[in-house]
Design a protein around this nucleic acid. Sequence first.
DNA 1: CTGAAAGCGCTTACAG
DNA 2: CTGAAAGCGCTTACAG
Lengths: 354, 354
Amino acid sequence: MARVRMRDVAEHAGVSVRTVSNVVSGYEHVSPDTRAKVQRSLDELGYRMDYLARGLRSGRTGFIALAVPFLAEPYFAELAQAVIRAAGRRGITVLVESTAGDSGVERQIIEGGLTNVADGVLLSALTLPAGDVAAKKPDFPLVMLGEHSVGDQFPRVGIDNVAAARTAVEHLLEQGCRWIVALGRNGSENGRQRTEGYEQAMSAARVRRVNWLVVPVEDWTRDQGYAAVRELLEGDGPLPDAIFAFNDALAVGALRALDASGVRVPEDVAVVGIDAIQESAYTHPPLTSIAPDLDAIAERALALLEEQIQSRGASEEAAPDGEAQVGAVVAAPQEPTPYRLVVRESSRREAPRE
Amino acid sequence: MARVRMRDVAEHAGVSVRTVSNVVSGYEHVSPDTRAKVQRSLDELGYRMDYLARGLRSGRTGFIALAVPFLAEPYFAELAQAVIRAAGRRGITVLVESTAGDSGVERQIIEGGLTNVADGVLLSALTLPAGDVAAKKPDFPLVMLGEHSVGDQFPRVGIDNVAAARTAVEHLLEQGCRWIVALGRNGSENGRQRTEGYEQAMSAARVRRVNWLVVPVEDWTRDQGYAAVRELLEGDGPLPDAIFAFNDALAVGALRALDASGVRVPEDVAVVGIDAIQESAYTHPPLTSIAPDLDAIAERALALLEEQIQSRGASEEAAPDGEAQVGAVVAAPQEPTPYRLVVRESSRREAPRE
DNA sequence: CTGAAAGCGCTTACAG
DNA sequence: CTGAAAGCGCTTACAG
């Protein structure tokens, strides 16, 4: 029961390991007879490739790393699932890392902590200051997920946050809302961009400045959304028309706070989120949200990563000392991936006030 | 910028690679002077271990694989997060695989598809028939997650499903409910066990058989919960007292269906789930659920896996032909991990009917 | 189309 | 406490 190696298969089939390797890796020029013979030995002995050894020798492991802040956050879990599925189609195995929003771990990844294990990395950075990533100039295949505006140093894929936020707010404006609270500004680039989209829409609709309000939070989680809205609702006075939450988790928290305070959605306050996580179809009431095309994100990210992986192989051959600028090859600015507005009950006003 | 190897560090420091290796791996018996010298070279050259090479040579990669059916299902995402966190504390990297409920992939894993990449695997099987796993007698470290009753072939960790279900139903009975629908039986072992817990509680409370009802579903998802309850509510006639959903996803779907039909929770129908996923605190109304201790599950699973990994190392030394029965070493029946009942509004009746 | 052989970057008995 | 050397299981020019 000891491990079966290529050598064992070769002996069993009466060929050289070279030939076994050829058969296993699907090399074309092997005579049908030899192939059949080797295949039989392969099956009979139950050979299983040692990917580690192959990786060591060939420089390619067939793994890529996906680093997300919190795997337990629905958006990231769903993104990871999409990436795993897309990778599976390409015969790539995904190593999922959870950086826990800890920039230490993110930094470690940027510095190449996974380089020799993974052929490349997909990084959905949260805490890492954009400048830091840019400064490191990683010398391995890297694609950023989400809109982080890290200069144009790396290929990145994600929706256009500004446009997405604008779309969400425009939808609320179309429903007749005029006093719209933006929920979720924080230090992140994403937060800035979504704030900007909000402001663009409010400005274009000529909404009075007094009716603009951006509520900050630390993290885009249900609890923070809940807490922020509870605070907002305390005391007396008129209510805003609508809440535009920067993601669905915040929106879920907001809905719960509204519900707990007896505020009706959408009659009193309309709510819109971003991400269209699965949960959003089951909230009370179902949540209107911006749905990024996760499959498109995954597909494109993988395509970009593979481009880099391939070009690295090529350039290393050309310049064995590894001076090649890996990232630069494909750093051309990317089109943002598509998204769509999913209108559900949380923002559907029977009779627009307008 | 070419890759810095141990040999480079050794030359730079004027020692042998053996010494560099000793320093890097924290071997004790290295003179302080040598250590300092080597450390300086390490830093100066920016050495980074090639884990692949180490793994090939030493037989340990420092990776374990975690295979779950659907990473996008909240329970599994939260479990994965717990495992990653616990593994991080032990210096282990987790390779997350999503089997997509496809028994093909699960089977592949059981057959050792990840063996040489991961030191061991944590498998949360869903579709795989218990007998199959048992029949394969995997020759690598394996711990099953969740209660699958695969004989006692493998160490496994999870809550006691029967007891958990019984606890949930007993809680409903205590609230005065007498006509409790169990939602979620399917072909899975988990489903059978939760059904059994339901029956035990109903039986012990001497509830009339006419008031027992087990509603089947295919998957434990929100949509299936929604669809099943919609169907249940169609037409006229009295409503049941309560719904015991076999997991929170089903409960979320049930809550939505109830809400859409204008049925009040908990006044008309109380609802209880299992898993206590984060989402459950934000449903309408907040959902009572059974909370398994995910950290305990992760910790224990990792401990059991490490035991096996270690004992394999040991036994292989003793019996180089690999005849050692890896799993058997620690296959002693495990205590189920703890859980607790989290009572929220969905089952809290001000005035128990009893 | 196939063989014999070098080598990927480590670890680890074996000596000293 | 440290060196010189073998070898983990592959891939891949280099020959033939």
